[in-house]
Nucleic acid binder design. Structure first.
Length: 575
RNA sequence: CGGCGAUUAGCGCAGUUUGGUAGCGCACUUGGUUUGGGUCCAAGGGGUCGCAGGUUCAAAUCCUGCAUCGCCGACCA
């Protein structure tokens, strides 16, 4: 490709609404442009990278025995009503009606469509197991699109679905997909981790997420420094402390705290260290037989955070978790949030393990502007249950028993689930088994955020000058940058010759034939992240040489013009 | 959906407080100049100042409503 006949579309200035580095660089490098919130046009360079990701994903899916197909974006509502997700999915499901007023959804995922397809086409156990996949545009009307293509309303996803006669068979395919995903992220050159994940409302028994490690990641993941244990922080178990609770050594004592409504203010105004106090959070309890929801108190140590997923999975707590409204708290307790504590609470109390081993601790007195010190479980609070309801923190012991936990941020680029029979049962998808009886199929589903990978890869591969693409992802492998071509007779000839020879050799090459100053060209090629740049200038031509620059290492190497094509092709193809 | 902020040329922004009919840098076009890391000079094209209504002799500027975009939060198979 010649830049003069291309849309390079690089920007000197950073568009003001781009927050994270990958979004900024995708705009500046001319990869994407915003059409509306969460909707992006892919320019030629961006599309080439997207296609490179797709190619690797397809190859590894095919290797793992999956078969590619393609389903519609527009899906009839009745399928979603059948699975129960027409109501359940909420406003994220973008709904439309056709000219006959028939309701449809723009597909955020394809469990319904694939299950419908398979129940019609697959009739016998002999046709199982089977894994089908597609690479396709998904639509989710996100509450808050952000970070460019990282969380967009329309995005490219590879989604795969497997069908089985037994759970054992499902587990085998699940392992195979797990391995295929590892292969994909290895080949993409990404620093990634498979982590245990919550199955969420999609249900099922086992689930892993694949995270690309990056500071800008929206998820926190916890992993052991002494084993391969890794889990989304939502899922990571906080082990009960091994230490026994100390015996009470102080009396219960109230003190005035008119200005202290938060843990931080207690520390600043009264010298209470956060780990010597507890936080009391009031949420709604599980509905009783009359559909009434009472209040429940959740208690965690002052320096810990509540884990909402753990809390809402507790029998006493309403799911989904909802923090109590201030008015409800005041009418039940007689105090505002900020002065709450476990002593004398007239509601069920769930105490986190770490808070339950505290002695002589501080908490609100359930009276505005007053706290207690010297609180002790058993003596001052008798009726409570203990559970794991907090997020793990750096340094906690690993739930696997080996080592301690570290916490890093990650971008979720893949998610695999064992669905079991959730969809096959609601949509009646069975096959005839060996015995001649109808049998429900077990399902697995496996997603990769293809467009999100492009952004995640940039988060991991950039510097002050722009993107540093790994060769497998780069929009071009090699750029030819001639110095002042229009002033020379031999440079255009040599550059054009090299360009056509590299093209003939199958190298994806960008020839910068613009009448621009060298600095402009260097900057654009570095911004775009082309892994190798071949510089052709009078200076080196006098020695019959050209110079190759490596974008990632900065290394420069000279080649004689006669050997350049052969040697550089060998260099590129060896990677 | 709640809180905050923004909306002026393709991009980045000034002008709004104090109303007088729009400007800067980049990009773009033309000519010259320069040439191994975002040259310099000159000339030029491009904006119903987000939309609607109001106040006024006069509105980018003041008032009201709406829309869009972003940030934080809540939410997120």
């Amino acid at each position: 490709m010649r830049t003069s006949q291309y849309i390079l579309a690089t920007l000197k200035e950073t568009p003001s609404d781009a927050e994270i580095i990958s979004h900024q660089l995708m705009l500046r490098a001319g990869m994407i442009r915003k059409l509306a919130s969460g909707l992006y046009t892919w320019l030629p360079s961006g599309l080439k990278v997207l296609r490179n990701v797709e190619k690797i994903v397809r190859e590894e899916m095919d290797n793992a025995g999956a078969i590619e197909m393609l389903m519609p974006v527009i899906q009839p509502a009745d399928l979603w009503q059948e699975s129960g997700r027409w109501e359940q999915f909420g406003p994220e499901l973008l709904r439309i009606t056709d000219r006959n007023n028939r309701p449809f959804a723009l597909g955020p995922t394809h469990e319904e469509v694939i299950t419908d397809f398979v129940r019609k086409e697959i009739n016998s156990y002999k046709q199982l197991p089977i894994t089908l996949y597609q690479v396709q545009t998904k639509v989710r009307d996100e509450v808050r699109p952000r970070f460019g293509v990282m969380r967009a309303r329309e995005f490219t996803m590879k989604d795969a679905y497997s069908f089985h006669l037994s759970e054992e068979c499902l587990t085998q395919t699940y392992q195979r997909m797990h391995q295929a995903y590892c292969n994909i992220f290895e080949r993409l050159g990404l620093d990634y981790r498979p982590v245990l994940a919550d199955t969420g409302s999609i249900g099922g028994s086992l689930s892993h997420e694949f995270h690309v490690l990056a500071e800008s990641g929206e998820d926190a993941i916890a992993f052991s420094d002494a084993s391969d244990y890794a889990a989304n922080i939502e899922k990571a178990e906080a082990l009960a402390p091994k230490t026994e609770r100390a015996a009470p050594s102080k009396e219960l004592n109230s003190f005035a705290t008119p200005e202290a409504k938060t843990i931080a203010e207690l520390k600043a105004n009264h010298g209470v260290k956060p780990h010597r106090g507890v936080k009391t959070l009031i949420v709604y309890g599980a509905a009783d037989e009359n559909e009434r929801r009472g209040l429940v108190a959740l208690i965690v140590r002052g320096d810990h955070d509540l884990n909402e997923l753990k809390a809402q999975s507790h029998d006493l707590v309403h799911s989904p978790l909802e923090m109590a409204k201030e008015q409800d708290i005041i009418s039940a307790i007689g105090a505002r949030p900020g002065s709450l504590g476990p002593v004398g609470l007239n509601m069920p109390v769930i105490v986190d393990h770490s808070a339950a081993v505290m002695a002589d601790f501080v908490a609100g007195a359930n009276k505005d502007g007053e706290h207690y010190s010297g609180i002790n479980w058993g003596r001052d609070v008798t009726d409570y249950v203990v559970a794991d309801i907090r997020n793990v923190v750096e340094g906690d012991p690993s739930p696997c028993g080996n080592g301690s936990l570290h916490i890093k941020r990650g971008v979720e680029v893949g998610h695999i689930f064992q669905l079991g029979t959730k969809y096959s049962e609601s949509m009646n998808a069975g096959v005839l088994g060996e015995s001649g009886k109808n049998q429900m199929m077990s399902m697995g589903c496996y997603g990769i955020g293809v467009s999100r990978i492009v952004a995640a890869a940039i988060e991991q591969n950039n510097d002050d000058y722009g993107i540093k693409w790994p060769l497998a992802l780069a929009p071009f492998s090699l750029a030819i940058v001639p110095m002042n071509m229009h002033k020379s007779h031999r440079i255009p000839e040599i550059a054009n010759n090299l360009y056509s020879e590299f093209k003939k050799a199958g190298i994806d090459i960008l020839f910068d034939d613009r009448k621009e100053r060298p600095g402009v060209m260097f900057n654009d090629m570095e911004l775009l992240g082309v892994p190798y740049t071949l510089v052709i200038g009078e200076r080196n031509l006098d020695n019959n040489q050209v110079e190759l620059k490596n974008r990632r290492t900065g290394e420069k190497r000279m080649f004689s013009i006669d050997d350049a094509v052969t040697e550089i092709c060998a260099l590129i193809n060896s990677q």
